[in-house]
Design a protein around this nucleic acid. Sequence first.
DNA 1: TCTATATCACCC
DNA 2: AAACGGGTGATATAGA
Length: 568
Amino acid sequence: MANHEFRQIICCDFEFVAVDGEAPIVVCLVARDVVTGQTWRLWQEELEALSGPPFPIGSDALFVAYYASAEFGCFLALGWPLPANTLDLFTEFRCLTNGLPVPSGNGLLGALAYYGLDALSCTEKATMRQLVLRGGPWSQQEKSDLLDYCQSDVDALVRLLPQMSSAIDMERALLRGRYMQAVAGMESVGIPLDWEMLQQLRLRWAAIKVALVDRIDAEYGVYEGTTFKLERFARWLVESDIPWPQLPSGQLDLKESTFKERANTYPILQPIRELRVSLSQLKLNDLAVGRDGRNRCLLSPFRARTGRNQPSTSKFIFGNAVWVRSLIKPSEGYGVAYIDWSQQEFGIAAALSKDPLMMDAYASGDPYLAFAKQAGAVPQDATKQSHKAERDQYKACVLAVQYGMGPESLATRIDQPEISARKLLRLHRETYRVFWSWSDAALDYAMLHSKLWTVFGWTIRVGEDPNDRSLRNFPMQANGAEMLRLAIIKTQEAEIRVCAPVHDAILIEAPLDELDDAIVTTQQAMADASAILLDGFRLRTDADVIRYPERYSDPRGTKMWQTVKELI
DNA sequence: TCTATATCACCC
DNA sequence: AAACGGGTGATATAGA
């Protein structure tokens, strides 16, 4: 924590009731200034009477919490301004132990255990959390118990801080702390949905499933209710004299790709294949939607090893099948925009490795076609239209390299013989030599020193059984996550309502007459973020704009959306 | 009957 | 030994 002298260091914890889709209900707060020892204990009503926190939050104060987005959710619910400096010990604990086993998890108790500090037992903690979640009214005794419990977490923070502080890179930690504020902002704003349509869907869900199965399964008799029965399917296959591949375990291989391949030879399988695909996509059960029709859930920042957000895929609309996004609809007078970086990971790879050809390819606007040209596979005047097939293959190769894919898988992916896939991968190595030696060096470094980190210090430790594909991919994905965080911070600081992060994209919302400006500002923030991270190299973005009364639509999901609408 | 495991599908 | 990175979650079947 050198070079950062704070006059106040405030460790803080709230108790609150969280309901999916809704703002938190604040129950109480305890905070302590570790410099002076001053302690604040405040109950609901007292907090609501305040227009800001009782402790200092200015530039010479440091706000310390564990999972600060939760605390900031309470700040926002109370209408309080946010602190200038935030140190989130959850995030720092993740950063310090990322990739290593954490025997007791990543929670506050886990961090205390990791550093050999004692704490409240899990069961005591669970009991008290239940008392919070039960909701009010609480007796005087319960109130004082809850405040004591809340204070025990603050005590824990106070003890954890010195244990961790020597290992914390304060400058970067403060940046991550700013992102925790941004997360609270997004969790509070949420994503506007078509409430009526969602109600319709939920109401008729079971009936839609049954209708789908009834329509198709009569011919096969392999479903029991709406569940596919393996045994029945096996019997039907024998009766129909259709050979079927098995998994090593002996079980029938039920992969979509297997159905696809078999359906080519036995077209009778086509309808049941489509039924399986549809049913597998029919799950929007747990979408977390508030009474105002907005999708809000924990975004779980820094949860993934790469530092990405990892919201629950069932609660978060962008985790569902793409057709479900058609439920996204701005409210009257508003628009939303989905703005994503173009070929973000390719651009990051180019800029960080400083591979001149790769940077040229990115700058050309169509890296995939540029790669094909650089490899001499298509003429210099080739276009997306004139050489679509070649471009598709070189695109698949670029993506394959980013994931460390081997020739067999790439061959399957592009539906070509293995020798073609080998050739593509070889051309990538030969064309982007600088990138490959950079990637090799990163892997060597990771194996030798057992860690790797991003430009802003998000670190992965190399544990047992390292996966070289993960390690090679880490700089691209983890720096992509850094870029997203920085861009979101900047966008929010420009007073734009950010609804959600989507790995390489940002969803924003604005009144219709401000939407175009908001998009420009966001794109500027995203370009700036890339330049800061990539030493001046700017990545492009694309914007998908939806103006009330339009709804979001993704071409990959329109067919399923149509089917569902017809069934309603 | 409940839980664990395997497998699969979805997202970027 | 295999070789597609990072994830969450549902479902079907096997096992306690």
